[in-house]
């Protein structure tokens, strides 16, 4: 029954981010990455960091977003700890100044927010649909579709291999990987590569029998146009990015 289906509930009530076309999200991601790389001032970077945080939080997957922030914070603290140790051991490297960490941290925050908004709103089916809307040539579309299709299958395969190894008395965990890396590699790697090669052969034969790759160009059964929400989101993003650039370079421009 549709009412009891969890998936139908998700598809019937998509969030703002999910409603956006993947082309819009990719464009926002690309523009933000480029602009964040050029900006140096704390204020323009802070404006963009807050705006990108709102953009990522609109996805409503707060746990994933905050876990990612936690991971960035841990990595940042580890890097700062290493710098501190270096300045203590080698004083000629200079002093550690906390304000120098702000701009790199804000830049990383902007990048992570826009990437999270893109990656979290993409499911296997929506990515395959997105690849079609991007109108990529077959040379790129076919391997990308195969890659997306096979990622879940390989995860299941590796789990099965890991379980079969457990039955034989081998456990794959951090200890066995650290102390028996070659054995672990041999036990995991060999069956999965043979499986991958067989799968690709079978899939290739099936694709050739279906005539895939023999038409002059891919035909699209559905054409998707950008919606009003896409234009609005694009406009807001462009205004914010231009505003941040003006804030940074207004002395040089005017």
């Amino acid at each position: 029954m549709p009412v009891l289906s969890e998936n139908s509930k998700i598809s019937n009530d998509p969030g703002i981010i999910q409603r956006l076309d993947v082309r819009t999200k990719m464009a926002i991601c690309a523009l933000s990455s480029i602009v964040a790389l050029f900006l140096e001032g704390i204020y323009p970077l802070s404006i963009l960091a807050v705006a990108s945080m709102v953009y990522a939080l609109l996805h409503k997957r707060l746990v994933v977003v905050f876990v990612s922030y936690g991971a960035i914070l841990v990595m940042g603290l580890m890097a700062a700890f290493c710098v501190k140790i270096m300045t203590v051991v080698m004083p000629e490297m200079g002093k550690m100044e906390i304000q120098l960490f702000f701009s790199p941290f804000l830049r990383v925050m902007i990048l992570v927010n826009v990437i999270l908004a893109l990656a979290l709103s993409s499911r296997v089916q929506s990515i395959l649909a997105a690849l079609k809307t991007l109108r990529l040539p077959l040379v790129i579309y076919l391997p990308a579709a195969v890659m997306i299709r096979f990622i879940p299958s390989f995860i299941v395969d590796i789990k099965q291999i890991s379980e079969s190894l457990k039955i034989r008395g081998y456990h794959i965990n951090p200890l066995t990987i650290t102390f028996h890396p070659l054995l672990t590699m041999r036990l995991l790697f060999v069956p999965i590569v043979v499986r991958a090669l067989r799968s690709s052969d079978e899939l290739a034969i099936a694709a050739e029998l279906k005539g895939l790759g023999y038409s002059e160009k891919i035909s699209y059964y559905k054409t998707t146009a950008l919606s009003l929400a896409d234009y609005c989101a694009g406009g807001v993003a462009t205004t914010l990015l231009c505003g941040a650039c003006l804030f940074e370079y207004h002395d040089k421009l005017f």
């Binding site: 077959l138 040379v139 076919l142 391997p143 990308a144 579709a145 195969v146 890659m147 997306i148 299709r149 096979f150 990622i151 390989f154 999965i192 590569v193 991958a196 090669l197 799968s199 690709s200 052969d201 899939l203 290739a204 694709a207 050739e208 895939l212 790759g213």
Partner: peptide, 13 residues
């Protein structure tokens, strides 16, 4: 087609 599928499979793996 076969080569494109092999590239996709190995990228996933």
């Amino acid at each position: 087609t076969r080569e494109l599928i092999v590239i996709g499979t190995f990228a996933a793996l």
